[in-house]
Design a protein around this nucleic acid. Structure first.
Lengths: 237, 237
DNA sequence: GCAAAAGTGTTCAAATTACACCCATGG
DNA sequence: CCATGGGTGTAATTTGAACACTTTTGC
């Protein structure tokens, strides 16, 4: 048996939802399309899966194309395949969720693709079902960051606890008590004090920490039970 | 623009991981293939996505085919698309995760497909990457059931608290304190006492409860913080 | 020396755990 | 009447929430 009878192929696309954090807001890397279809509209960065390419490799390729980065934190977020989601022809899209340190991206690559970093609350409407994908990604970020230490993926290698707090406040769009936050984070044992103080500060300089990567891997799957409600859905069909 | 240039289609399959609970063990509905490829081997129930079919509709179709049921709890679990995963031809599979009340399935449909309910710890090795899919599904079941009230999907409409406890003990393969479990479950406010007592019992008859569906929907997305560790992975690529 | 941000401590309430006792049922 | 499983209570511990004071820095 060398083929399946009477089955025809479907176009497989990959779309990437790329989150960054600028110290104040959670941002998305979106592109203003200078190509068809829907030239001029905003969309996620995407592309077609190549003939001899694994899904994750396709995502890696597309992420590298837009950011110049390798070794990005990526998860599969889901597949979108409604019959009429792409008006050109039937296309099924595998969506990937990526977190990067916003300082590391390649400015040239971003410019080349006509992309911009846009705050979540200022994001334009996107083509096709990309709005739905982004909505799900934001929910996933909230869900996952409440339970696992993925926040660090959005920060530079060295960071202060106040920075980390601002990140979580941005993710959940809610103020957090400084003292409880600090205590909780330090108690995870995930942070290593570098002994250095943050230079960029007009007042008291905060201590710079780095992630204990060994402990991070070890503890990645133990729950944090950190933030208030967020969600994930099961669909009843 | 009515087509994309130079892009060729890929076969899209759907595979379903179907969990049941017989009062003692968590079981999987698996099929012993009486068709090619890999005739005689065990696999998940699957099929190809049809030309004008949405993904969820495909899953619904396949689940109905095998169980005779509609309105099953289903979630997308992920996509598997490694280039060589299917030796016949390149196929990308969208995997769905389903929970059903084992008493409701159609025996004829199951027999027709040469399928059986098999306990997790007795499951045979499966074809292709189906073992990996099942492994991920079990992890997902543990993860999700610790945080959301999905356990009820595996039970009959009316159930006792000891039954519910056996279910969670089976999911986590660990004993749970009877008294604390009962208190915690009742405190969720999700259970309605039917006033009826369980007939099938040689000793004291347990109270039968049913799910408060309104409250279930309302509280589905609030965390439970229920069970001990389980996991979910982010892939670093 | 003062405004602004960082670091640390204490108290109270709530949730979780670890236990022990009594009740209903069928044989 | 007794073995089996179901139902409920309580004390000890742990965890989380709320809140106040001191320190460092640049101007």
């Amino acid at each position: 048996m060398t083929s399946y009878p009477n089955i025809s192929g479907i176009l497989l696309a990959i779309d990437c939802i790329i989150f960054g954090f600028d110290g104040k807001d959670i941002k998305l890397l979106l592109i203003k399309r200078n190509f068809e279809p829907q030239k001029g509209s905003w969309s996620l960065m995407g592309g077609f899966l190549e003939a001899n390419e694994n899904l994750e490799d396709g995502a890696t390729r597309i992420l590298h194309d837009l950011t110049g980065l390798k070794n990005i934190y990526v998860e599969q977020l889901g597949v979108y395949g409604n019959v009429q989601r792409d008006p050109v022809t039937r296309t099924v899209s595998v969506v990937f969720f990526a977190l990067i340190n916003i300082d590391d991206h390649s400015e040239e690559a971003v410019k080349l693709h006509n992309a911009s970093w846009i705050s979540l609350d200022q994001r334009p409407s996107l083509i096709f079902d990309h709005n739905e994908m982004v909505y799900k990604a934001i929910e996933h970020l909230r869900y996952k960051a409440a339970l696992h230490p993925i926040g660090f993926e959005l920060l530079p290698e060295q960071f202060t606890i106040p920075q980390l707090q601002k990140l979580y406040e941005a993710i959940y769009n809610t103020p957090i008590d400084r003292r409880n936050f600090s205590r909780k984070l330090l108690s995870t044992g995930l942070l290593i004090d570098t002994g250095i103080k943050n230079a960029h500060s007009a007042t008291k300089k905060a201590a710079l920490y780095k992630l204990d990567t060994a402990r991070y891997k070890e503890k990645f799957n133990s729950f944090w039970n950190f933030m208030p409600d967020s969600m994930e859905n099961g669909v009843r069909i």
